[in-house]
C-alpha cells in the first residue's frame, strides 16, 4: 500500500501523516472530568496499513494492520469505528496482539511439521479449526472447548499499551475501501472520535465489581466443567500413551531411543532412582581406595588446602579493596 506522502500541513503544529507504510490516524478522545485542563484536547494516534505478514495467509488481502491501539479497544468498538466514521466498511473479525488477562498459554512441543504455524500466529478462531492437530501439539492438559473451559473471570479484555491488532474485513474490497477512507480522513483532517465502549465491556467500577463476582462461579458450573475436562483429558491421555509407545521404538536422528513412560513394569520413580544412585556411591566410597592411604595423597591434600587458604585470602583482600573503593575510608561513624 502506498501511503499518502506527508502532505501540506493544515495546522501550525503538525503531526506527521504517515510513517513508513503506515498512515497515522489521529483519534479525538472523549472529554472527561477530573483531568488536568491541558489534557482535554488529547489525541490518540493509530498507525494503519494493509496487513502483509512475512508468512502470508489467505485472509491477508482483506485485512488491515492497526498499531498502537487504545487499551480499551475491542472487536465491537473497532467495528463501530469503521462502520460509523470510516466509510462503513464491514469488519468480520479482529485479532489482537495482546490481551489482559492474557490468553491461555498451553505448553507445546517444538512442532516438526507444523512449525510454520508459529505459536504467535495461532490466533483466535484458527485454533478451533485445527483442534485435532492442536491437541497433539500441546504438552500437557487438553485444549479446552466450551464445555471444559473454566468460566471467564473478566468481562472483556484490555490491551497492553501500544499493542496492535489485525482487522479482517468481510472482503478485499471493504479492506481497500477502509484504508482509502482512513487516508482521506487524514488528508482532510477530519475529526474521528474514539468511542470506548458499550455496555458489555464496561470499564471502571463495573468492570472490577463484575470481576469480583466472576471470581466465584457457582459450584455446579465448576463441577460440570471439571467433569468435561477430565473426560477429554482421559481420552487424550490414551491417545498420547499410544503415541509414546510408538516413540519408544523409534530412534531419533542421533540413534537414541527415547525412554518414555508406560512400559510393562511402569516407570521407576525418580526418587527411587536417586536412592539407588546414592547407595551406589556409598558402596563405591566404602570399597574404593581411601584418599589418605598414600603419602602423595596427603601431600596433595595439604597443598590443596594451602591453595584454598591462599585463594580465600586473595578473595578477601580483593573484597576489602573493592569495599574501600566504594566506600572510601574505613572510618568510625561520628
Amino acid at each position: 500500500m502506498a501511503p499518502e506522502p506527508p502532505a501540506k500541513s493544515l495546522k501550525p503544529k503538525s503531526t506527521p501523516k504517515a510513517v513508513g507504510d503506515f498512515t497515522i490516524l489521529p483519534l479525538t478522545l472523549p472529554t472527561l472530568s477530573g483531568l488536568p485542563e491541558h489534557h482535554q484536547d488529547a489525541k490518540h494516534y493509530l498507525y494503519i496499513k494493509a496487513h502483509e505478514p512475512s508468512i502470508p495467509t489467505a485472509d491477508d488481502e482483506r485485512s488491515l494492520f492497526l498499531a498502537n491501539i487504545p487499551i480499551d479497544a475491542t472487536e465491537s468498538n473497532l467495528r463501530t469505528l469503521f462502520a460509523d466514521q470510516l466509510g462503513g466498511a464491514m469488519v468480520e473479525s479482529v485479532e489482537f496482539d495482546s490481551s489482559i488477562p492474557a490468553r491461555t498459554l498451553h505448553k507445546r512441543f517444538k512442532s516438526s511439521e507444523g512449525s510454520r504455524e508459529d505459536a504467535q500466529q495461532q490466533r483466535g478462531k484458527k485454533r478451533k479449526r485445527n483442534h485435532a492437530t492442536e491437541q497433539a501439539m500441546i504438552a500437557e492438559g487438553v485444549v479446552e472447548d466450551e464445555d471444559s473451559a473454566l468460566p471467564q473471570l473478566w468481562h472483556g479484555a484490555l490491551r497492553r499499551s501500544g499493542s496492535g491488532a489485525v482487522v479482517v474485513f468481510v472482503d478485499k474490497k471493504s479492506a481497500r475501501g477502509a484504508l482509502k477512507e482512513v487516508q482521506k480522513a487524514v488528508v482532510q483532517g477530519r475529526k474521528v472520535a474514539w468511542k470506548s465502549g458499550e455496555t458489555t465491556t464496561a470499564l471502571g467500577v463495573d468492570r472490577y465489581k463484575s470481576h469480583t463476582t466472576l471470581t466465584y462461579p457457582s459450584p455446579s458450573v465448576l463441577q460440570s466443567s471439571i467433569n468435561a475436562y477430565l473426560t477429554q483429558f482421559n481420552a487424550l491421555e490414551t491417545l498420547r500413551n499410544r503415541h509414546r509407545k510408538t516413540a519408544r521404538s523409534v530412534p531419533d536422528e542421533e540413534g537414541f531411543v527415547t525412554v518414555t513412560r508406560g512400559g510393562r513394569a511402569g516407570p521407576a520413580r525418580i526418587a527411587e532412582a536417586e536412592k539407588k544412585q546414592a547407595e551406589l556411591e556409598e558402596r563405591k566410597k566404602n570399597n574404593g581406595v581411601k584418599d589418605d592411604f598414600y603419602r602423595f595423597q596427603n601431600r596433595e591434600k595439604r597443598k590443596e588446602q594451602e591453595g584454598l587458604l591462599k585463594r580465600r585470602f586473595e578473595d578477601d583482600r580483593r573484597r576489602v579493596e573493592s569495599m574501600r573503593e566504594r566506600r572510601g575510608r574505613v572510618r568510625p561513624e561520628a
Binding site: P30, L32, H44, D72, L158, L203, G204
Partner: peptide
C-alpha cells in the same frame, strides 16, 4: 485519558 476511561 485512557487511565481515566479505565478507572471510570
Amino acid at each position: 485519558n485512557e487511565i481515566r476511561r479505565l478507572g471510570g
